[in-house]
Amino acid sequence: MKIRPHTPLVASAVLLGLMASGTAPAYASLDTDPDQVAQTVAAVAPTELSAVDIHENEDHLSAPLTQGGEAVISRAASDGLTFSSDPGEQGTTISLPGASALSDAAVSADGSVTYAGNQQVPAVNVVASEDAVRISTVITSPSQPQEFAYDFGAGNSVEIQEDGSVVVVSDQPAAGSPETEVIVASIDAPWATDASGVPVATHYVAEGSVLTQVVEHRSGDTTYPVVADPTVDQPNIFQYRVRFDRAETAAIASGGWGGVVGSFSCGVMAPVCALATGSLAYNAGVAQNSSPKKCVQVTATQPMVVPGMVWWVDTYAGGPCT
């Protein structure tokens, strides 16, 4: 599916059309209509997502994802969302902000899932598509919070990248390869937009396994409702990463593939490192010439070279790069 961007003008026109037709959402009420929440999210979201078919079970809803993955959307908001690479396998669970005050899940006409809120807690709308899973909060007034926490659970650490995006890394390395980290979630840079299509200042804060989106909707001339979300990329729920430290980065920059082999840090990702030799050497040189100096890393959707595998090399700061 090709994701097509909305423009603020189009988004505003859609929402204003809803208001003019008398179907504008009454978000301050306790009986928020799931379809109205879904319409408001779709009107201002920067990308258009089409929901996959939802399978309804007694205690949860399931959405099949690409490459055999699955998103499990619990009926009770307090049970959160779970992503797994294969149906039935233990996956990564994400808590929802304000979960204790949210209603049970309801499927909207567009296939998204909504947890209705109230005057103190924003509603949460979830769209599971083939390309991404979007988790949106719909903020209806200045009295509602400006911080929304998503906990990825014990054993995971949240990292905010230079471009504002996020990776969530398991504290346990890949089996049999202590050099290889497992990335359990990749999240787009945050966004927030008010009802007139005007961006609202927002950013992420990371602490341990918790990712918090801060939405500064009380500052400035904000038109409510405000929609904000983290979007979890698909189809690569699980990825693998090798980070090289300063000494290893210097060795790679000066010796190319020989430097990589000499570092003994690729582990199970050695086939990917071999494939990425040229890019590793180039980016290591960029890292060495940066001020302050950075380090090089390689990420892949599989630790072995297989059809459909995607890999990339970039630089980073912090962590092992000290």
Rank of each mutant, 00 (worst) to 15 (best):
C266G: 04
Q144E: 12
V305P: 05
L102D: 02
S290L: 07
G155F: 08
S29D: 15
D229Q: 12
Q288W: 01
A63W: 00
A253N: 03
P64C: 00
A149T: 07
F264E: 13
F83A: 01
A192T: 02
G17S: 12
E207Q: 12
A132Q: 07
V127R: 06
S84G: 06
A270Y: 04
L81Y: 01
H55G: 06
T249H: 01
D151K: 05
S136W: 04
I139M: 04
D35R: 01
V182L: 03
P190A: 01
R75V: 10
H6M: 10
T47D: 10
L81A: 00
P235G: 05
P145K: 03
C273N: 05
P64D: 04
A206S: 12
P46Y: 09
M19I: 11
P64S: 06
D79F: 07
D33R: 13
S209D: 02
L65Q: 09
S12E: 14
H203Y: 12
G220R: 07
L96Y: 04
S263M: 01
L49S: 07
T202G: 06
A284L: 07
A192K: 05
A20I: 13
V215L: 02
S279T: 14
M304F: 04
S254V: 01
Q120M: 09
N57I: 04
L30P: 09
V133Y: 00
P173C: 06
A99Y: 09
T231H: 02
S186D: 04
P225G: 09
A247R: 08
R246T: 11
S29V: 14
T32E: 14
H6S: 14
Q146G: 13
V121M: 03
G259M: 02
T301G: 08
G98E: 06
